[in-house]
Write a protein that binds this DNA or RNA. Structure first.
Length: 562
RNA sequence: UGGGGCGUCGUCAAGCGGUUAAGACACAGGUUUUUGAUGCCUGCAUACGGAGGUUCGAAUCCUCCCGCCCCAGCCA
């Protein structure tokens, strides 16, 4: 999938170069066949999006195919709800897979045959050592391992034992099938890795058909091989496993894809590990996998991110082998850039302050014309009700303003967007000295198109009419973590202490222009001068509209003010 | 003290023996603007982890050193 609008921004990356060279040299008869192989044990996040965009993107770019394959070899952790969410997320991101969805579990028979063939070739054996013993026999980083006493079993014995494992004759953990490679290898993955373990567990797809399940290392490479994948793209930590995959595939003499490793994404102030994210969900620190603060695809979708912005982001961050942490600012930029083009402008007052126009005709209501998107004339216009009683944003008024504050202050003029120029004449306060109302006058000729409409006024405010505006809830989100790299936070061993306690702010007294309550869940808008917001996918109803802050507008004033 | 990787601007990241060392984000300044938004313009690495070496010429090749990441699941 190309980001047409940013084609000039696309730079090369080493994987794209490899693919190009392979096509040029006709290495795979010009084929490009990739796959995205998640384990269905959690929700997909922005880190997966990088891999999805890479794999599906390469296939699209070079006229190939990308399979979606669920790597479901560990029934203890996996569940169909995760496969369903992953299917939805990949599709939402805008990608299409080949004729069907693939599952490693559909290769269990073949994988089992591969194991038999390894046994027959004397390259695998059944080991009776338990997990602890296997660890002890494995040695350490600097010390060679020791052969298992069961390593010398005959082919016939191994075959018999493995069949009995498969037939369910042994309890969990009592036996494993191991590759017979080299217990002294400097690469720990080559020290007779476990190929099959006994797990008397129900599998979400194969049910109770199996009680032995292949390890990832024995399933992944062969699955790629079975699917005739040409480029097996994975993350850096599997670099050490490549010699093992090569060993197995060569022993089996089957199609040998080319594995290429790249650095996974790290995002500042964000945790990208399914394990830790599920911790946030399980411990109730967020409302679920789709909490808008979550870096999951589902969370970002609910927050208001567009598939286009995520794809653009994944293209811009590049692909390399160096570990790196991308700033949130880049992600936010991608969203703003996309939404600036697409989002209709609306007016919403998040923290209302009453403003009365004393010289406006009592009871009069005008329908003012407003453009829906100044950058896109095709988006048309809409009518907004204006009256003598309005709400403006509390932060848009200051009694004792700092220099360069060009919003409303006593005695000064300001323009109301799409409407008139007003002047603050009086400030009403309650007994505690809090400002409760502003009393202003307006210049009737200053309406858009009017004789004094072009008067130069520094500040322009958004507003809504008291009577016609609707009440709404707006949810403001900030980083879930204060630390730039929460994963590196050695101090806080538990997630809780690393959390930003102010990551969610709920504003229940917001007032929005009437058109907004007619929006559909998932609709995205620019609330003028505030940011981009999205009607909540779950909680929005016309009677209780709920909007999520997707991203604020750039705010130079906030910077100056600091 | 084992093995596998990686070190180019604040953050990503091109670069593949001869370039003024791309571009983006961020940042700074200017300008347009009825969003302090957007747009537009300008600036932003004599420098490529360090030290040597090869070469007419090195971020790119060689050597040594330094730093960071990954690996001791019957997880993926």
């Amino acid at each position: 999938m190309k980001n047409e609008n940013n084609s000039d921004l696309i730079t090369s990356n080493f994987i794209r170069e490899i693919v190009k060279q392979d096509i040029a040299s006709n290495k795979w008869e010009g084929r490009v066949f990739t796959r995205f192989p998640p384990e269905p044990n959690g929700f997909l996040h922005i880190g997966h999006a990088k891999s999805i965009c890479l794999n599906f993107g390469l296939a699209t770019e070079f006229g190939g195919t990308c399979n979606l394959r669920f790597d479901d070899t560990n029934p203890i952790k996996e569940d169909d709800i995760y496969v369903q969410s992953m299917i939805e997320d990949v599709r939402w991101l805008g990608f299409e897979w080949g004729d069907k969805i693939h599952y490693t579990s559909e290769y269990f028979d073949q994988l089992c045959d591969f194991a038999m063939s390894l046994i027959k070739g004397g390259s695998a054996y059944v080991d009776d050592l338990n997990a602890n013993e296997i660890r002890e026999y494995r040695g350490t980083l600097t010390k060679a391992g020791i052969d298992s006493p069961f390593r010398g079993r005959s082919v016939a014995e191994n075959l018999g034992l493995f069949v009995r494992m498969k037939n369910g004759e042994f309890p969990d953990g009592t036996k494993v099938l191991r590759a017979k490679i080299d217990m002294a290898s400097a690469n720990l993955n080559m020290r007779d890795p476990v190929l099959y373990r006994i797990l008397n567990t129900h599998h979400h797809r194969t049910g109770d058909t199996w009680c032995i399940y292949p390890m990832y290392d024995f399933a992944h490479g062969q699955s790629d091989s079975i699917e005739k994948i040409t480029h097996s793209i994975c993350t850096l930590e599997f670099e050490d496993h490549r010699p093992l995959y090569d060993w197995i595939i060569d022993k089996l003499g089957i199609h040998h894809p080319q594995q290429i490793e790249f650095a996974r994404l790290n995002l500042a102030h964000t945790l990208l590990s399914k394990r830790k994210l599920s911790g946030l969900v399980d411990e109730g620190h967020v409302s679920g996998w789709d909490d808008p603060r979550m870096p999951t695809i589902a969370g970002m979708r609910r927050r208001g991110y567009t598939p286009e912005s995520i794809r653009d982001f994944c293209e811009r961050i590049g692909v390399a082998k160096a570990n790196s942490t991308v700033e949130i600012a880049l992600l936010e930029h991608c969203l703003r850039e996309d939404l600036n083009k697409k989002a209709l402008r609306m007016m919403a007052v998040l923290r209302p302050l009453k403003l009365t126009i004393t010289n406006y005709p009592e009871g009069q209501v005008e329908e003012l014309n407003a453009d829906n998107n100044p950058g896109d004339p095709a988006s048309g216009t809409r009518a907004i009700p204006f009256s003598g009683e309005l709400y403006i944003e509390q932060e848009d008024f200051m009694e004792d303003p700092p220099k360069k504050f060009f919003r409303l202050t006593p005695g000064k003029e300001v323009r109301l967007k799409h409407a008139y120029i007003i002047k603050c004449e009086d400030v009403v306060k309650d007994s505690n000295g809090n400002v409760t109302e502003l009393r202003c006058t307006y210049d009737p000729d200053s309406k858009t198109g009017g004789p004094t409409a072009s008067r130069k006024i520094k500040g322009t405010l958004h507003w809504v009419s008291v009577r016609q505006s609707k009440k709404a809830e707006v949810r403001i989100f900030k980083h879930l973590f204060l630390n730039e790299n929460p994963a590196d936070d050695k101090e806080s061993t538990d997630l809780k202490s690393a959390l930003n306690t102010k990551s969610l702010e709920i504003l229940k007294e917001c007032r929005v222009e009437p058109a907004l309550v007619e929006s559909k869940p998932g609709d995205r808008f620019q609330f003028l001068r505030m940011g981009y917001f999205c009607s909540d996918l779950k909680d929005f109803t016309p009677s209780t509209p709920v909007f999520n802050l997707a991203v604020t507008l750039r705010d130079t004033w906030a910077k100056i003010n600091k």
